[in-house]
Design a protein around this nucleic acid. Structure first.
Lengths: 337, 337
DNA sequence: ATGAAAGCGCTAACAA
DNA sequence: TTGTTAGCGCTTTCAT
């Protein structure tokens, strides 16, 4: 497979490679006899010819691929939605290649994830929830790039960011109004600048509303319910002793884990512990109790990123979008008892 | 960027391209003076050299990439988990490239998705929940391939499939025992053979338990709650009139939509309508009511696929796995009233 | 309208 | 130990 080359087709069709190339790329306008075109078409089909992309890229110097740099894994909905948003908005002529941003291998010249992404000569780059290191490396990158979900980015890259100020403020105000004084935080993806700044913002807004965010976060490596549940059960005694009456989770799915843990440990949510998350996934409304969350437009971010990419590529100018978010209070938050 | 070529480095380091190539690929064992190695290293760093993958591929004839053919989008958890399973089990030296299996573009020689995937000369191919067309094309493909989630596959490809017989039988038995006689089905991804056979199996097992699956499915194009909710509200009168007392959803997330619709329309679940899904996502246990489901090992399928791929590539032999699933009854199913 | 030929950047024999 | 060279498969001027 992929054994059949242009030359084979040319030989079979009794013409030169140039002719075949022309036809295959639909550039045979008035440049080929109908008759040769037909012969080429036949040869292509009979031989099952599929162009070799590496060769095309090499000859052309460009590719039709966008490299997607994501933080280790898709981790379910949020990044998956972004991916779907991007792919859905890009034509099928685009190839998406994924490289995970986890630390490099043992390669000889220490290879950064970004470098690995760039090796494929992508026409564009999408970096989701990048680390500081990646953002820094990005300053040297010439390829049109859009960063999704970062607090900031080098001036020449496009940026789709989240405007969380007011929604987090709303959440903090809600907490204050309900009489909570000490809140704990469940975090995730320590490397990601976006997640780091999310925590800072939460702390700041809570402080502005006379609520204290205790220092001891629960830092998780994944989103799975079981893992979160275990981790929460371990840390809960400490939190409880510290007077924690509410928990904010960097991702709804952590909140799911806490809900599960609470059930198994007989902790009453929301009366004993109020919970809120980020994302506002579909199930939130259906949970028992329904989960308060800050809604994030994951899918739209992906779509917008694709548009931004297209525009950035066309105009050469970076584009920036700051997307609105919204605090959605639900029954998982209640008066401190 | 990616402007710097091997030749530039060679020139800068005052040596030949071959030497640079050797060093960059860590094959400089006893073949280079420490001194030249040092000069090359310096040159590489100073120039910021990144090898051009297209050129490498062309010269080598092989790539370190696996092409992932997925049905249109990731659609949230199931496929995302598979992707994470695969990437997590493959070294970082592997690049993943994604092509969506939606109908082709207007390309000149009508390009199938598979063809597009193959153009990149992937070392391996992963096809998730493929359509009949793709499965058929696969018979001609020489690249080591693993199909994930299909009822069957050509003999030379590896296959990770789901063993649903007994779990669906359990579900059917449960329905029968609860006194249900007419059940409706919510489906998805009409193209996918796996989903099609899932429906057939459901029908068969229900029949075996004296339960009728009515003909009028709700066929959805996505998993989002809102869309499902709307669609359900439209079809519900028909179903109700037909005496439907239970619904089986090809994906839990459809069930979420139904739960939401039921709330808004005052349909009592489970008393008026029992609901079950496939996947058994984390939130299922936390819903109100908790959702019955057939658990599918999405993440493990991905891991296993990666292992299968590695083995298939190494031995040249396809490997098959049939993974167990499990019916998990919960409160969303109850006695027909 | 069609073909010849020169690269695109890299690797791997083969010489030196 | 190092350099020379011949491709890998394709695109694209430039002749014809």
């Amino acid at each position: 497979m992929a054994r059949v080359t242009l030359a084979d087709v040319a030989r079979r069709a009794g013409c030169s490679g140039a002719a075949v190339s022309l036809w295959v790329n639909g550039k045979s306008d008035g440049r080929l006899t109908d008759e040769s075109a037909a012969r080429i078409e036949a040869a292509v089909r009979e031989l099952g010819y599929v162009p070799n992309r590496a060769a095309q890229q090499l000859a052309l110097g460009t590719s039709q691929s966008v490299a997607f740099l994501f933080p280790g894994a898709l981790y379910g909905d949020f990044f998956a939605s972004i991916v779907d948003g991007v792919t859905g908005h890009l034509g099928p002529e685009w190839e998406m290649s994924f490289v995970d941003a986890k630390p490099p291998t043992n390669a000889h010249p220490t290879t950064s994830p970004l470098e690995r992404a760039l090796r494929g000569n992508p026409a564009a780059l999408v970096a989701a929830a990048p680390s500081a290191a990646i953002l820094d490396e990005l300053r040297q990158v010439q390829v049109p790039t859009v960063v999704i979900d970062a607090p900031s980015a080098p001036p020449h890259v496009s940026l789709i960011s989240l405007d969380l100020e007011s929604s987090v403020s709303d959440l903090a105000a809600h907490l204050q109004q309900l009489g909570h004084h000490r809140v704990a935080y469940v975090s995730f993806l320590a490397e990601s600048l976006s997640l780091a700044s999310r925590r800072k913002l939460v702390r700041k807004q809570l402080a502005a509303h006379d609520v204290e965010l205790i220092d001891e976060d629960l830092l998780l490596g994944a989103l799975e319910l079981q893992a979160t549940k275990q981790a929460f059960l371990e840390i809960w005694p400490t939190w409880e002793a510290a007077g924690v009456t509410a928990v904010i989770c960097a991702d709804d799915r952590h909140a799911y884990g806490i809900l599960a843990a609470a059930r198994s440990a007989g902790i009453d949510i929301p009366r004993q512990l109020s919970v809120a998350g980020f994302n506002d996934l579909d199930p939130n409304t259906l949970l028992d109790p329904p989960l308060s969350a800050i809604w994030l437009p994951a899918f739209s971010m992906g779509e917008l990123a694709a548009d931004a990419l297209a525009e950035h590529i066309r105009t050469g100018q970076p584009v920036r979008h700051r997307m609105a978010t919204r605090y959605v209070p639900r029954a998982s938050m209640t008066q401190r008892r």
